[in-house]
Design a binder for these strands. Structure first.
Lengths: 205, 205, 205, 205
DNA sequence: AATGAATGAGGTTTCATTCAT
DNA sequence: TATGAATGAAACCTCATTCAT
């Protein structure tokens, strides 16, 4: 036999699996990763302990399923669109606001991912990959600004992007996971101002 | 006989306790917090399992002892002194360099603290306190620069300090714990430039 | 609704049952008795787990069905016929050869029967019955030889038959199940010679 | 940590380990290998379940310990010595009697070994090694008889030894494990006569 | 007849903590 | 103080069997 973890073949099975993922999400948020036990997920889902193993091999596997859902939600934020045709500062502001908002919405689980990443190599790598992708995107936009003569050309675009992204994500973590609780708009404003100045962007009208 | 956790009275006791802390540090670094077991700490120290409880009530307690040691080391860095009488940028640079160097020296344990902070409320609070103290110090120095008309007065000093410190600490974490590995001098240079620009400090020299 | 285990009524049912027995045989040979699980038999047969219970109540029952098939095969060996009208030694030789050949053909399952017999009383009894029948047949032929003054009359025919049959079957087991691997003809020759001498049969031509 | 299974360091520990082995022996004899559960061994020994794991990693390990004890007992049988200076038949008789007696004494556990050997490769190999050693010893003595012109030189000594030993051991198994129950003396007599005749040894006085 | 999801009792194993010596 | 054996509550995971569809 070796392993199982089947994909459900019937609607009923699909429903049960979904119920389990939803239940797991709640328990993880409530208890944190180490204190979450298989039996409790099953109980929360209203199924027998054994049924958990019909769909997942272990806690990691269902955690990954939960995080997939979360990522989905973070990728499709209800965008407060950057005003088309606006300048780079406005775009940075829009990006920062979008990031902080979606982070706030999923604060518990973002904290959880942070937690698990410190414990489990598999998830550490996952987070690292996402982070690199994110930084590269920002690096590209910084490089473009440099080419347009708008941003400080004395900066390495990738390093600068990493550092500034780190700043934003860490502030988000502090506020929404650790509970520092400054108002969103203040954060957006400060971070955007710091970011723009750090790049030495010219003031926008 | 509710509790114990004696302070050692004899020299022999003191030696044993020290041995345990040193052993714990090694095991924590090797295994991470959750995978470190009391029995293994005792074995590493070459004492019986039961002896652990002569000095500590649980894993948290010895972890705190280890972190105290580390903090000691981080507070007394072999300073690359900021050139006396130099300008603010040079001071920021010196501070960043000092921070990154001491972080690098204790990378494993800083990662550990991060890890434990996500798991245990007690340590989360501890880290938060340290963080606030650190940010306040930086906030003070930003406020002073503002008063001197050197730094952007449009920034809230405390928020700005928090954000910029977050940037530096997160970059340190990425590099030395997750293993991104950019050269120290490049990091110092980039972070300092970003920090100075973010505050809109005038160019030095 | 205490029990089930229907005899299939439709051709489709008969086909499914046969598929299950064939699948079980393969799984038993591959995994051994204790490591064979109902679910795997069903999977190997390409039917749902539940369908197993339409035809069998448990693992023992399907194992019995498999062993029936095997017995069938062992009873109809492609006989290397004993030369008609030949002497007793030639007949013993033919019997030994036939036994070893069919044992070799079904080595995996003979080992399996051995295995299960050590675990399950039901099968132990089954094997014992077969063994007694076999020994009695041999006892009869020894008694006949004694009456003809050809075999050692100092031997109890049943005991002698048991012991000599034990010798042959154990050698077969050693070779084909445990993998000792002496050539068939050498085995036949040695066993026959020992058997004949043990009975003090006169040399044949 | 990885593993444990310590050798006891105190007399108390040694006592407990011995108690566990003795208890395991009783439970194995009573229940057979697959039906023996760790918890029951511990209960029979009057210790907590967890204590089992202080000394053994799993069921196999304690079973090996039990079998070591048994082997010890079988190697030091209370010998019914072969009459010094007697002929080969008397020696064969003495050997057969000794073998059957010690087999009878440890019948349950010999059956157990047979059982486990069919299930577990480790023990199968162990039994095979013992068997080969035993057969080689017998082969040597047959070869010697051949050199003296006393035994049938048409036989391969190793094959003959294997086959005749198989006969004896299988008869022992039948009688004492499966419960065929012929009287010891009858068995000794018959087996010895068959063995001697099979080798065509000359009648002894 | 067939399906495959659901069950849950039953076993194994771990490890923080206690305690007699 | 030091020892290290003993404890036992948890947690994990398996798999034969049932059952609604």
């Amino acid at each position: 036999m070796e392993r199982q973890a089947l994909e459900p073949r019937s609607p009923r099975g699909r429903a049960t699996k979904a119920t389990l993922v939803a239940a797991a999400r709640r328990v993880f948020e409530r208890e944190g990763f180490p204190a979450t036990h298989i039996a409790e997920i099953a109980a929360e889902a209203g199924v027998a302990t054994g049924s958990f193993y019909t769909y997942f091999n272990d806690k990691n596997e269902i955690f990954a399923a939960v995080m997939d859902e979360v990522q989905e939600e973070m990728l499709h934020p209800v965008l407060s669109e950057p005003p088309a045709g606006s300048g780079p500062v406005a775009m940075i502001e829009a990006a920062n606001r979008a990031y902080l908002e979606s982070y706030r919405r999923n604060a518990r689980l973002m904290g959880l991912l942070e937690q698990v990443a410190t414990i489990d190599d598999e998830f550490r790598e996952l987070r690292r990959q996402r982070w690199i992708a994110f930084a590269k995107r920002n690096a590209g936009s910084i490089a473009r600004l440099q080419e347009q003569g708008l941003a400080d050309t004395g900066l390495d675009p990738y390093l600068a992007a990493t550092a500034l992204s780190a700043m934003v994500s860490r502030v988000a973590y502090s506020n929404y996971v650790l509970g520092e609780e400054a108002p969103l708009e203040t954060l957006v404003e400060t971070l955007t101002r710091l970011w723009a100045s750090a790049l030495r962007l010219p003031d926008e009208g």
